[in-house]
Design a protein around this nucleic acid. Sequence first.
DNA 1: TTCATTTGTTACATAATCGTCGCAGGACTG
DNA 2: CAGTCCTGCGACGATTATGTAACAAATGAA
Lengths: 230, 230
Amino acid sequence: MARTAPPRVLLVEDEPAQRAVLAYNLEAEGFDVIQADNGEDALLLVSEEAPDIIILDWMMPKLSGIEVCRRLKMRPETRGIPIIMLSARAEEVDKIRGLETGADDYVVKPYSVLELMARARAQLRRVRPSTAGVVLEHEDIRLDPESHRVFRGEKSLKLGPTEFKLLVTLLERPGRVFSREQLLDLVWGRDIYVDTRTVDVHVGRLRKSLMQHGGSDPVRTVRGAGYALG
Amino acid sequence: MARTAPPRVLLVEDEPAQRAVLAYNLEAEGFDVIQADNGEDALLLVSEEAPDIIILDWMMPKLSGIEVCRRLKMRPETRGIPIIMLSARAEEVDKIRGLETGADDYVVKPYSVLELMARARAQLRRVRPSTAGVVLEHEDIRLDPESHRVFRGEKSLKLGPTEFKLLVTLLERPGRVFSREQLLDLVWGRDIYVDTRTVDVHVGRLRKSLMQHGGSDPVRTVRGAGYALG
DNA sequence: TTCATTTGTTACATAATCGTCGCAGGACTG
DNA sequence: CAGTCCTGCGACGATTATGTAACAAATGAA
């Protein structure tokens, strides 16, 4: 995957253990991680480090995440930076929303790290034309998220909605093996109950769609583990 | 979400109450906890249970933590396991340091449980990069956990699920000898009953797979003890 | 050497996993 | 409203992996 400079994320969380876990995972995903354990430092670091995205815990000593969020969204030079808020309970999300802090997304603890990653990437794609306009590519497969179009070589392909999301997910990390459970999380959403075998069916459909004009099977089955691209 | 095996921590602390608190918290964090209340048991359990990390109290009857630490760091097969020493007062840390016991980190009582967790995780990340992004390597064998791919030199290898997990385990600590029981624990899971001889068969299969394109046998048999890589 | 023990290897029955098909229900469209 | 598309599920067969037993080879001790 051709990359520009790695995206910089400012991670604001006062609980050291949680921060460490997240930082570790974010770094493993190729993010440049800047850390802060309170709101005041966070505000300083935003100007100093110019992060591309902010992950912000709600509950923090001194300045709460809500307050930090509000202030950042007021300043014109920082209001474009997407903010993902972490909150401890689902009801709190409504509260935060009600306060109109302007956060771009909310994740409820305990969250799946994969989900948080996916949302962070989604936000980045949204605001960062370098990533947003860029088509996802792998070998001869091209996918333009904007126009919702998929090509294999020169031929245009027709995919169903689920096939499309599935391909986007796989395309975001070519080579990486996703378990059926992970794919259910990322493509279907965590709270939906569907049988894991359903993933198989859709992978099969995606395969057929990708090969409708010929070509080899780009999806790799890893027995006992899951699926990957290439 | 598919997990790798949970990290195993050997907790050595003679004071029951403190040990209970720590064990509880470690388990809540997803560690697999093995407990000992004296240094002798600790030394035994290290070989039997193959922990990923050791948390060691300084003051203990019989063998002190310092002595245990020194002995573990002398044996080549255990010296890679990170040790965190607990000591009662700050001045003692200097003393321990002066003794050059080789502990990897020190935490002063009374410590914050959260801090101890964070340090434990930090140590694990340091020595056990298996979880993300990092490629496990030993001599000409390369294994990428993320893409589930294995190479010997330039050639790609095809392994079955069990062979793969077995290789991951061995690769996480090249040179270390694992007993058949340990391998059953780590590869098959703690509560599965299978004959220990099954390990032999799978080691044989792994050998064949690793040598399918030629090359020498990288798995060493230690008669009466188990298997190791290199 | 000879013997007992441990380990390597093969074969085979069983079990688990995977790909695919068809169907019924739902959503959406014209 | 009819028609089309999509979805999730159950079922079936084909493939692959697994565990065990049996036997061969090796190792080490006496």
